[in-house]
Simulated scan of single mutants.
Amino acid sequence: MSTDWYRWEGDDLLLRLRVQPRAGRDQFVGPYGDQYKVRITAPPVEGKANEHLLRFLAKAFGVSREQVSLISGDSCKNKGFRIQGPRKFPISLTKP
């Protein structure tokens, strides 16, 4: 399995996600090339999907919403995120 979709930068986790909005439920799907596919229920309208995804990631990784930031892909399906000091891992990751 390719791990190009995430990397560690100190205690921060950087993720490359492919996001599918307007899904039936919020879920991590699996590797998608050099990204990880995520489905969310929110529509891609007026930043609602981005905010919903930030909250979803915060809950999934056991951190506050303020510890998750969108670092690339504000208006496209390919996005980059930084998670500061994740406390749990909803998907299989290894930290060197």
Rank of each mutant, 00 (worst) to 15 (best):
Y32C: 04
P44I: 08
R16N: 12
N78R: 14
L54Y: 00
W8A: 10
H52P: 04
R87Q: 15
K37W: 06
E9D: 15
A49V: 02
L53S: 06
Y6C: 04
R55Y: 02
P44Q: 08
V68S: 02
G24V: 08
V63N: 03
L15K: 02
L54V: 13
K37L: 15
K88R: 15
F61Q: 03
P96N: 08
N50M: 05
K79G: 08
G85T: 13
L70C: 03
S72G: 11
G47K: 05
D11G: 05
F28E: 04
G10V: 10
H52A: 13
W5D: 04
K37H: 13
F81R: 05
V45F: 13
I83K: 04
A60E: 15
N50S: 08
S2I: 09
E66W: 01
Y36S: 03
F56Y: 15
P44A: 12
F89C: 02
T41Y: 00
K77N: 14
L54E: 11
V63D: 03
V68F: 08
P96R: 12
P31A: 12
D34M: 01
V68M: 06
R39H: 15
L13T: 08
C76F: 00
A23Y: 05
D74S: 09
D11L: 10
A23L: 07
Q27R: 15
R25P: 00
R22M: 14
G85A: 15
L57K: 09
L70D: 06
R16E: 10
G62S: 06
D26S: 14
E51M: 09
D12E: 14
I40R: 05
W5A: 02
Q20N: 13
